[in-house]
Amino acid sequence: MTPDLIYGLTGIAVFAIGLTGALCAQDRLRRVLALKLCSLGAGFLLVVAAWREPPAAPDPVPHALVITGIVVMISATAVALALIRRLQSLEAEDDD
């Protein structure tokens, strides 16, 4: 087992866990977290794509991609959380 294989499989497993959560979870917040797991798994895979046998330097391109992916996911999470909060306060008003 080489490190890239171990990390690669871990990435795929994390993505799969996230995917299951995103499809099956009921709770709104849980689904957001599941989606974040998915993005983590995909990021993992890209980092593995950057890995080279030690004396060689890692490939910088996937690192740049992962950083972009993180920024995208942060904005997406922020929007999702804002939506959930707004929806919750609207539903709370109805209950009163």
């Binding site: 996230g18 890209l46 794509a49």
Partner: peptide
């Protein structure tokens, strides 16, 4: 994200 995972595989 599914698309991104595919992108990762391609790279």
């Amino acid at each position: 994200l599914l698309f991104l995972m595919g992108v990762g595989f391609v790279y």
